[in-house]
Design a protein around this nucleic acid. Sequence first.
DNA 1: TGTACATCAGTGAACGCGCGTTCACTGATGTAC
DNA 2: TGTACATCAGTGAACGCGCGTTCACTGATGTAC
Lengths: 192, 192
Amino acid sequence: VHFDGDLRRTLIDAAAERVDEVGADAISLRDVAARCGVSHAAPAHHFGDKTGLLTAVAAESFEQFALHLGTVLGDPTLRPLEQLATLGRAYAAFAEQWPGRFDLMFRPALVRTDDAAYAAASTFAFEALVGLVERCQQDGWHPDDDPRLLAAGAWGLAHGVTQLRATGALARHHAGVDLDDVVAIGRAIIGA
Amino acid sequence: VHFDGDLRRTLIDAAAERVDEVGADAISLRDVAARCGVSHAAPAHHFGDKTGLLTAVAAESFEQFALHLGTVLGDPTLRPLEQLATLGRAYAAFAEQWPGRFDLMFRPALVRTDDAAYAAASTFAFEALVGLVERCQQDGWHPDDDPRLLAAGAWGLAHGVTQLRATGALARHHAGVDLDDVVAIGRAIIGA
DNA sequence: TGTACATCAGTGAACGCGCGTTCACTGATGTAC
DNA sequence: TGTACATCAGTGAACGCGCGTTCACTGATGTAC
């Protein structure tokens, strides 16, 4: 039997775990390898170099992220604008649960962002958002605006609030920073 | 004559310059010291350790940032909502001109964010934003919402779009990413 | 069934590196008397 | 005006560190005949 990519899997999982624990900057190949019970030269065999491993982690994280957000989309019990609000909550919730992965996903200095899997997951998520925005527009929300423009804005809003929350910047100036507050902030600014 | 803090000034300036050139993660005390024509142990004398220097750079950058944004505020030729849009443009423009400093300002792993100067500049900027929001509300914009909630939302929106733009994430899915497009995205989502 | 060969995942030792920090020191400047 | 002392910015040598990468290798597995 051939366990093709078995160690590869283990390495990605261990690296992702460490990224959440100590941050993408503090990761070392030697540490990850040791935690997999393998020599420190083994990762090079599967990923070439450190950036290769981090790229694999980022790509897989983005897939998980897209999947996580996707569970919100298309829920028939929610009207489109409610889905948008719920999506914002899910965005912040993901960053809360997997802080290192979320950070890594948006750190082009550490990741080869032209990686096929990474790019595919990113595009998939954005296009799903555009689809939701179009459904919101059919419900009368900003019906005359470019859906991609609105999608970019919604993304930016969710991303910014999430990031300010994650870095602690928001907490310095605003009392409430739990997920309900995040949604309230988003709703207020888009007037929904 | 006592040139008190002369080298201190030089070190902060050189460090800020290098942060923009190579990124906050790639900075080394030895490099900064060498560029100031000084031994590599000199920075320790003024800043204690590396975090001390980076904290000084971040604090000063935040002051510059607040000043930069402040030039927009209170312009009597612009109505409050126009000021808000212009503020968003200035936000993104600062990150474009000083990418490393902007990044560093929101990297709590590299900076002692409880530093007095850093906290003061951050608070000053946020409170100024709250003031602008209140003037917008007097003009009929979301008159019944909590101004701090709206300010947090406006901040998040500007921050997120700026960050997605800086990391290249926005450019992967949206055609236009210049400053006009940034403003258009912001205007669309807040319906202004 | 058995032999020869190819593939390839993982080893472990070694290399070389720049780094932050420490520390006893020098030498200039300022202060007390 | 001169002497003794204190302060303090900056030096330079040394320490110790973990790191990513390289490379000849071993040994197991799969394939051809």
